[in-house]
Design a protein around this nucleic acid. Structure first.
Length: 461
RNA sequence: GGCUGCGUAGCAAAAUGGUUAUGCAGUGGCCUGCAAAGCCAUCUACGGCGGUUCGAUUCCGCCCGCAGCCUCCA
């Protein structure tokens, strides 16, 4: 029985789909004006893992993750670059999809874009204006009147009184209440704009998610996810908009993932302490990043450091080393004991660190079986690969992972030659030469491993 | 200031009212020409002070420290 921590109730709850056997999940995606960093990668990997698990559990899942392709930052970046904003967003959408594929993140079922959802956005704003939940401000922008929504602040545990006491809020005189937020923003000259009942302009950030999620999944759906920082005000505002407009409950379960940190500080664009996915990929194989992300629970902070990536690499190396040289069959019988433990972990609010620990126990068993019982070894290896697959890992050929992908062929040939030379040296008991070859290769980052049968295999350090 | 959440061994990271997490690193052993890998054994814990309890790292209170949100941010 799957339990999920619901931000709304601050408790783990038994997951009960609105419609038996079906799940609708919406996740706030990227604003595409720059490359994805590791924090974005975490959202992608975390919810991809959840999506995979829902499907594994037999649910018919509709997974929606939007793209914010119009907002202030995009416009600003386009101006800085002297680039058409549409060209800019296309570029970064492509880059995002590339990163996603690298991290074995399966595409969501629907990926709506703000600029392609303008009609739905305008319709929702219109409803809100008609219901007097929204008004046109002094500057022509349309605002949501937060005081008209009784539950405002419930998700983030805030109340309007406390918020208004905050002094850092820039009071916009066009608003009636400082906490009111913009639904439709009037265009300045030469800005991208769409026609609306309130004039040429563009949607505010919060409304697009309300419009796109209800469009794709209906007024009321199961799960809404995103980073912790979106809890307030973004998700709070979404609730106000959607429930205000439809009069129905919006979302049953709110899931928020924790941040990636650098030196105990949030990794973010504004702090400038971020590492892009493509940057990290130059140094580490993509699967290492994925395992790094899954090695901590999705709600916990995840500290980014070279050391942590190295840990993930070592962990993954152990698993692939266990799988090395064993035939795995896709339809093979799986070891139920491990499968059960794995599922128990995942059922407990997607506890991937525990799920991974099950894989390590399995690997130990597999290593033992390799020496004694080949049939059992195959079963365990198949189970390991199968369970790993549920986390989106261990699907590579073990040799390919251990030898490093994108290896230069000539490099490989050279290594093979050296290994041959060393085998000859060993045959003539020239240990000095044999050790020299091994050390030379080690300095090139190649580690040799002799088998009892006289053959030698290698892997990258 | 208000509201969330966190504080676990050398590092990372989980669970749990009494019994092995797990990965890396360390130590001893097996294996090996020697290594590596693997296997076996093993050492390092639960921020501080009180309370509840037969018993608390685990529940409660207070304190200290840290982070996040309250402003665009995954």
């Amino acid at each position: 029985m799957l339990k999920i921590y619901n931000t709304l109730t601050r408790k783990k709850e038994l997951f009960q789909p609105r419609v038996a056997g079906k799940v609708g999940m919406y996740v706030c995606g990227m604003t595409v004006y720059d490359y994805c960093h590791i924090g974005h990668a975490r959202v992608m990997v975390v919810f991809d893992t959840a999506a995979r698990y829902f499907r594994y559990q037999g649910y018919e899942l509709t997974y929606v993750r939007n793209i914010t392709d119009i907002d202030d930052k995009i416009i600003q970046r386009a101006i800085e670059n002297g680039e058409d904003y549409g060209k800019l967003t296309e570029r970064f959408i492509d880059a995002m999809h590339e990163d996603e594929r690298a991290l074995a993140v399966l595409p969501p079922d629907l990926e709506p874009r703000a600029t392609q959802s303008i009609d739905a956005i305008i319709a929702m704003i219109k409803t809100l204006v008609d219901k007097k939940l929204a008004y046109v401000g002094g500057n022509g922008d349309v605002f949501y009147a937060v005081t008209k929504f009784k539950d405002y602040g419930r998700l983030s545990g805030k109340n309007l009184g406390d918020l208004q006491a905050g002094e850092r809020v820039d009071v916009d005189m066009a608003k009636r209440n400082p906490m009111d937020f913009v639904l439709w923003k009037m265009a300045k000259p030469n800005e991208p704009a769409w026609d609306s009942p309130w004039g040429l302009g563009r949607p505010g950030w919060h409304i697009e998610c309300s419009a796109m999620s209800t469009c794709c999944l209906g007024n009321h759906f199961d799960i809404h996810g995103g980073g912790m920082d979106l809890q307030f005000p973004h998700h709070e505002n979404e609730i106000a908009q959607s429930e205000g407009a439809t009069g129905e409950r919006f979302v049953n379960v709110w899931m928020h993932n924790g941040f990636v940190r650098v030196d105990d500080e949030k990794m973010s664009k504004s702090l400038g302490n971020f590492f892009t996915v493509r940057e990290v990929l130059k140094q580490y194989q993509p699967e290492i990043i994925r395992v790094f992300i899954l090695s901590s629970h999705y709600r916990s902070p995840l500290n980014y450091a070279g050391e942590s990536l190295n840990d993930a690499k070592a962990a993954l190396t152990r698993l692939y080393t266990a799988l090395r040289g064993i035939e795995t069959a896709t339809n093979a019988v799986t070891e139920d004991a491990y499968k059960i433990r794995f599922e128990q972990a995942m059922n407990d609010d997607f506890n991937t660190p525990v799920a991974l620990s099950v894989l390590f126990d399995l690997a130990r068993d597999l290593n033992k079986a390799k020496k004694t019982d080949q049939q059992q070894a195959r079963t365990l290896a198949s189970t390991l690969k199968y369970l790993g697959g549920l986390l989106g890992t261990l699907q590579d050929d073990p040799e390919a992972f251990l030898k490093g992908s994108g290896e230069i062929e000539s490099g490989k040939e050279n290594i093979d030659q050296q290994i041959q030379a060393r085998i000859e040296a060993k045959k003539s008991k020239d240990w000095g030469l044999a050790d020299k070859i091994r050390n030379d290769l080690k300095e090139q980052g190649v580690i040799l491993e002799d088998s009892p049968d006289g053959t030698t295999s290698w892997r990258r350090d």
